[in-house]
Nucleic acid binder design. Structure first.
Lengths: 140, 140
DNA sequence: TCTTGCACCTCTAGTCACTAGAGGATGTAG
DNA sequence: CTACATCCTCTAGTGACTAGAGGTGCAAGA
């Protein structure tokens, strides 16, 4: 097995070098073998773990959720109800966030359309910000 | 004019007391008159400014953007191109975020549906996380 | 062999927009 | 006058990194 340096691991996983060290420091990655010169040396399993973490972060899972998911992954005989619950909770969050952002989008569009590109005292952007009552969707 | 305390200002604006003090410390709110006992005393104009800030934060504007918007609001004769640009930039951000979250939502739905509620080694949630290649939308 | 220069190491501090808590002063109602 | 809520300042903590200082290791070219 050839030595994979942290730089190479970074390139292969798309996770930045300081971030990899950070993940190790908070215990998402195990303490690794070090080469003679105290440099970290990665193996294929470490790279898979890193890819897992990266993918989960991209999907918006928090580090604590990822920690739980990794424990589950490490023990394939456990029931997967926890993993399912974590994913479902994340789905609910995402749906809520989309609804909220969609309302914001409508608000911002009204603001931008209403701007006559004149002076501040006729600007709907400023005006709407100053008066929440002018919002069509009051859900924010 | 009656004295409005920070607690009253908090109740009327919906901004928490420590957050109001924080806004003052970073210069979004002016240094205020203090009563004899060194307590902050707010006036109607301060409450309007606070409402402006709160609304802008709810719409997701960053503090630095709000700082600019407040400067514009303070000088109504300026052209409003800056305000317009800030709002447009925010709109683009929001649209991008919605697209991204919609892709995530699809991914999470597949994961959750695919979970057979058995053991981890058959769980699609874990499986998909471990292998980005299984994602239908690769845009994350 | 030497040296150049990049990649690696650890550690601390900074980011954003707050939030929590300690420890003490003030104001108000009974 | 005594509770007790509210106010004050200050420091430190949050999450998930990111930036920088100051130093070591290593591989390749002269």
């Amino acid at each position: 097995m050839k030595k994979i340096t942290i730089g190479e691991a970074s390139r292969q996983s798309g996770v930045k070098v300081p971030t990899i060290r950070y993940y190790e420091s908070i215990g998402l990655l195990p303490q690794l073998n070090r080469s003679e010169g105290n440099q970290r040396s990665y193996e294929a399993a470490d790279l898979r773990r890193l890819a897992f973490i990266r993918h989960a972060r991209e999907l918006g899972f928090e580090v604590e959720a990822i920690r739980t998911l990794l424990i589950l992954q490490d023990d394939p005989h456990q029931p997967c109800a926890s993993a399912d619950a974590i994913a479902k909770a994340r789905l609910v969050e995402v749906e809520q966030r989309i609804r909220s952002l969609t309302a914001l989008k409508a608000e911002l569009e009204l603001m931008v359309e209403g701007c006559g590109h004149g002076r501040v005292d006729q600007c709907r952007v400023i005006e709407v910000l100053a008066d929440h009552g002018q919002c069509s969707h009051a859900q924010h």
